[in-house]
């Protein structure tokens, strides 16, 4: 197990190298510079600016210096936000997105997993069908429409919740709900599918045959094993948080990192583009590793070699 983890950790080195090089090449091949302005800047001013951010160095040198900084966890200055370093932007904006994502994830799990279990236990009944309809509603309504709609109903009509922005727990509810609908249906459907599969496994059949109460069988045996596929979606779902949170952050005016993915490219804010890509890549690797480890904990039949 330890060896497995170590090997996976070492593997991140070439991954980061390739991802960073690709991003670097791609972002520099997009036309425009951080200093492209509608009111064209005189050449002398351009020169001062480029000198300040070392953009006048050859590209390989810029790349080398960036990576050297990255290794020392110094992600450089933001070019568009001149008083802020990328480290600060990450430190201030990541936690917001993570909080939003985590709350959305919990919402989704709390609603989706029971929905899935319910519909699996009552398979092919009205309850099953209506649960699945509810679950699919979530995946079918685009959040671009759902977010403003929730604002309209819950903030403007009913006045139960604040319209937008960030700060108190009440502010989290609407955006987290908007973000959660997508996972909710995934949770429900995958839980249902894996429950159905597990309940046919021999040891469950045996348990049932031994006369253990149906509800106990369902909960204890089936649920534990059904968790494995659920853990599987946790990894990719984490990546989706970012895609989803971009829309939700924009609509609800939330100070998260999601918007930087679009604005940093628009601003040609090279250090921010690099840092968000690399940190995100690292987190994906970490999540996948955690998912694999949790497999091992949940299912002793899985071995690592």
């Amino acid at each position: 197990m330890f060896q497995f983890i170590l090997r996976r950790m070492l593997w991140t080195i070439p991954v980061i190298f390739v991802v960073s090089a690709l991003t670097f090449i791609l972002m520099h091949s997009v036309p425009g510079s951080p200093f492209t302005r509608e009111r064209a800047l005189p050449a002398a001013i351009q020169k001062n600016l480029e000198a300040k951010y070392h953009l006048d160095d050859p590209l390989w040198k810029q790349y080398g210096e960036y990576m050297w900084g990255f290794i020392r966890l110094d992600f450089g200055p933001s070019i568009a936000y001149r008083a802020r370093t990328v480290n600060e932007i990450l430190a201030q904006q990541w936690p917001v997105t993570m909080t939003l994502g985590a709350v959305a994830f919990v919402f989704a799990a709390c609603l989706g997993i029971p929905l899935g279990i319910l519909s699996a236990v009552k398979q092919n009944t009205l309850i099953d069908h209506s649960s699945m309809v509810v679950a699919m509603l979530g995946v079918s309504i685009p959040s671009i429409a759902l977010g403003p709609f929730l604002i309209w109903i819950f903030a403007l009509k009913l006045k139960w919740l604040p319209v937008a922005t960030w700060g108190t727990p009440a502010h989290i509810i609407l955006p987290a709900l908007t973000l959660s609908t997508f996972y909710l249906s995934r949770f429900a459907r995958i839980t249902r599918a894996s429950m159905l599969q597990v309940t046919r496994e021999e040891y469950i059949v045996t348990a049932r045959a031994k006369g253990i109460r149906e509800s106990v069988v369902n909960l204890k045996h089936a649920f534990r094993n059904a968790l494995i596929p659920v853990t599987t979606i946790a990894g990719p779902a984490f990546a989706d948080i970012l895609t989803g949170s971009l829309v939700v952050e924009q609509i609800f005016g939330i100070p998260g990192i999601g918007k930087y993915y679009v604005t940093s490219i628009g601003n040609r804010d090279y250090p921010v583009i690099m840092a968000t890509t690399l940190i995100f890549a690292l987190l994906i690797i970490l999540m996948n590793l955690l998912v694999d480890i949790s497999y091992a904990l949940l299912d002793p039949r899985i071995r690592y070699n």
Binding site: L26, V30, P31, A239, T243, I273, F280, L282
Partner: peptide
Amino acid sequence: RFVDIMYSFPTLLLIILLMVFFKS
């Protein structure tokens, strides 16, 4: 291994960069 690397690539960022690049 290449697939593994691309898996770690934030799809969102990649597609935005690609689209801006294509369009330009």
